[in-house]
Computed example of a mutant assay.
Amino acid sequence: MTSSSLLLSLLLLLASSAAGLATAARDDDASEHGLTHIHIYLHEILSGPNATTIAVTQSPRGGNATFGRIGVLDLEVRDGSDPKSSELLGRYQGMFAFAGLVSPPSGLLTTVNFVFTAGEHDGSTLAVLGSIPSFEDSFERAVVGGTGAFRMARGYCVTTAVANPTPVSVVYEVDLFVKMDA
């Protein structure tokens, strides 16, 4: 299996993840804890000349090994799941590394920034860090900081694949729960 095929397979596993909690329940939880809820969508292109996720180094272990593989991503952040009818709000840029020797868990470590270039949060960023322990469920990572309106932010980010992924693309629903120091 080629490295692109392996990466595609891993991302499709992620895309088949189960739905998370209902948005209403999350909003109630956010309000109760003084968190701002931001609901957005990520649009990822998995292959072809416009791919938005690529592996830049392969595992030094060779073959189908993932340990040591490093990649980068630059996805669209939109206000809806349909790329043709939703507004582009910014970019989701970062890197990932397969840091686990044993699978499962995958050992996929991510560090990304939500870079808002339009809408209510234009000019601000949020930094998200954490591992993806399972490709079968929604996954949660920590919001560890930000700039602009999100200076000194902290919180968490829940990501869930939505709709049916294709071999070429996948859409993720993202719920950010953010608290800023007053």
Rank of each mutant, 00 (worst) to 15 (best):
P165Q: 01
G130S: 10
D137E: 11
D29R: 11
L21C: 07
S106C: 03
I40W: 05
S59L: 03
F150N: 04
L75E: 00
E87G: 13
A19P: 12
I70K: 04
G63V: 08
I132L: 12
Y156P: 01
G62P: 02
F139L: 13
G68K: 04
G71K: 04
A55D: 12
R26M: 14
V143S: 09
P49F: 15
L13E: 05
T2P: 09
R26V: 15
G148K: 00
E136H: 08
K84C: 06
G48E: 11
S4R: 14
L21V: 10
H43G: 00
N64P: 02
H121E: 08
Y156S: 09
G146D: 06
P49S: 15
L10M: 13
S3M: 15
V178Q: 06
A18W: 12
F98K: 07
L8W: 04
L75W: 00
V102L: 12
L73S: 11
S16I: 08
M95K: 13
A161K: 04
I40D: 05
M152I: 09
S85E: 13
S17M: 02
A15T: 04
D79I: 02
S134W: 04
H37Y: 07
A182L: 11
T52P: 09
S131P: 09
S134A: 09
M180P: 00
K84W: 05
F139A: 08
V144L: 14
A30V: 06
Y156Q: 03
S106W: 05
S9E: 02
I45D: 01
